[in-house]
Write a protein that binds this DNA or RNA. Structure first.
Lengths: 239, 239
DNA sequence: CGCAAATTTGACATCCCTCAAAATTGGTGG
DNA sequence: CCACCAATTTTGAGGGATGTCAAATTTGCG
C-alpha cells in the first residue's frame, strides 16, 4: 500500500459495474466516492494482513491479488484469486480480524473502504446494502465452487476448471488470452496439487492442443474441449 | 417443512446466543420475533431447494442439516453441516436463488426469516445488521477451512479435523460425546474420500484407541492426539 | 424372522506425490 | 550487450496413499 491517488472517479473505473458502487447513481454515488480512498499497490505488496483488526474493506480496481492462509500445521495455502470488481477482506466480518493475507500478483490498484463508515452508509442506502450482500454472496459461491473442485475433481479437471474460471473472470467475455501473474507454486497450492503435477498438466494440455504455454502467458485454444474436461468423467444426472 | 409452531420464543431458545437475535434486547427482540416463523422439519426433509428463488433465510434452532450441491459433472457433494445457531440459505445472496439443497439429518427445527423484511429491519437496526454480517463472515471462514482441509490435508487429517470440528460445534464446550446423524456416504462426500476410506479410517482410529464407534454414535477418547493428527505432519512456521 | 440398505473388510490398480536432476527464465552487474 | 547466478519450471523414475471392485457382515425395520 503506497501512493494515494486522489483522482480517478468511479465513473471512469473499469471495475465499476461489478464493485460496490454498481447500483449507485448521482448523489449516492458522490457520497460513496467520498467514502473511499484510492491506492496503488505494487506487485508483491501485502495489502491485507492475517490477524490484523478489520478497518477497511478493499475493492480491486485493477490488477490481480491472491489470498492465502495457513493450515493448522503452519503451511500456507492460496485460497483465492481476486480480480477487478471483487472485494478483499470480507472474511474479517466474522470476528473483525482478517483471516487471510492478500498479496498483489502484479501492479494493482484498489479502493479502500472504511468498514464502520460503510456500515452506516449501508443502513441509509438499500441499494448499497443490496450490492454488498450480492458481493458477499458471490464470494460464498466462489468458495463453494472451490470446495467442489477440491473435493471431487481429479487433477486434470481441476486444472481445466482453473483455467476456464480465470479466463472468464479476467476478460468477462473476451476470453482466450490469459495472463497468469502467479507462479506455478501458487497455482499448485490453490489446486491442492504438487508443483510438478501442475507443470506436467500444462505440458500435457499443450501437447494435446488445448492451450499454448509461454511461461506465464497462456492461451486457450480449445475452450469447448476444456469445458468438457472440467467435468468429472462419470456422468450421473439422476432426477 | 411441516408444522408451524407459534409458540417458542427466542428467550428460551438454546440457539439464541448464536443466532441472528443474539444482540437484540427488549423491543428490538420483540419485533424480530414477529418477523420470524417457527417450523419443525422432520428427518430427511429438504428445507431449501437449489435453484429456487430466495424468499427466506433459515436459522437452525435444533437438530442438524447438511447442504449439498451438484458438481459440473452432475454428481452431488455435501458442502457443509449446519447446527443450531447457523443460517441456511446465505449463498443465495449472490443472485437471489439458492445454490444448495438443505436437508435435515434428524428431526429438526428452524426459524424462517423473510429476506426482504430482514433487509429493511437491518437497515433500521445496526445491531441486527452487525450480527448478520458476523454470521455471514463465519460462514465464509467455515468454507475457507473446508477448502484448506480438502486442499492440503491427507485422509487421516481430514477425518480427525472433521470429528473435532463437529464435536466442538455440537456441544460448544462439553465435547467428547458425538452423535453423527449422517450416513458414511455423506461424510465421505464432504471429506472428498471414498466411503470405504471413511470406514477404514474410523476402524483404524478405533483400533488405535482414539475413538469408540458404535455405528453412528462416536465418542472421542483422546482429543489431544486427535488434534495432533489433524495437523499435517510437516511442520513449517517460517517467520 | 427376513430382507434391503448401510457398513466393513480385503485385494488390487492407479493417480499423484516425492525425490532428483536438467532446462529455462529473469535479474544484476560487468 | 553479454555473462552469470538464483529462482522457477520442466522432465523423469519410483513409491505410497487412496480409489475401485468385490464380497462378507451388520444394521434397521416391517
Amino acid at each position: 500500500m503506497d501512493t494515494t491517488i486522489s483522482g480517478p472517479s468511479c465513473k471512469h473505473c473499469l471495475a465499476r459495474q461489478h464493485c460496490l458502487s454498481a447500483r449507485l447513481e448521482g448523489e449516492a454515488l458522490d457520497s460513496y466516492e467520498q467514502l473511499v480512498c484510492f491506492y496503488n499497490v505494487p506487485r508483491q505488496t501485502r495489502l491485507v494482513t492475517r490477524g490484523a483488526p478489520l478497518t477497511q474493506l478493499y475493492s480491486v480496481r485493477q490488477g490481480q491479488f491472491k489470498t492465502e492462509t495457513r493450515t493448522p500445521g503452519g503451511a500456507s495455502q492460496v485460497t483465492g484469486w481476486y480480480l477487478p470488481g471483487q472485494m478483499l477482506g470480507l472474511d474479517a466480518l466474522a470476528d473483525a480480524h482478517y483471516v487471510s493475507d492478500a498479496v498483489a500478483l502484479c501492479d494493482s490498484a484498489v479502493c479502500a473502504i472504511p468498514y464502520q463508515a460503510l456500515m452506516t452508509a449501508m443502513a441509509a442506502d438499500p441499494a448499497l446494502l443490496g450490492q454488498f450482500h450480492q458481493l458477499v454472496g458471490e464470494e460464498l459461491v466462489r468458495r463453494q465452487s472451490a470446495m467442489l473442485m477440491l473435493g471431487s475433481a481429479r487433477a486434470p479437471q481441476r486444472m481445466a476448471a482453473f483455467l476456464l474460471e480465470l479466463a472468464q473472470q479476467q476478460a468477462k467475455g473476451q476470453e482466450k488470452a490469459l495472463r497468469l501473474c502467479m507462479p506455478r507454486e501458487d497455482i499448485s497450492s490453490y489446486l491442492g496439487l504438487a508443483v510438478e503435477s501442475v507443470s506436467r498438466l500444462l505440458s500435457r494440455f499443450r501437447a494435446e492442443g488445448l492451450i499454448t504455454v509461454s511461461n506465464r502467458a497462456i492461451s486457450l485454444l480449445d475452450v469447448p474441449r476444456l469445458r468438457q474436461l472440467a467435468m468429472p468423467a462419470d456422468e450421473e444426472v439422476p432426477l
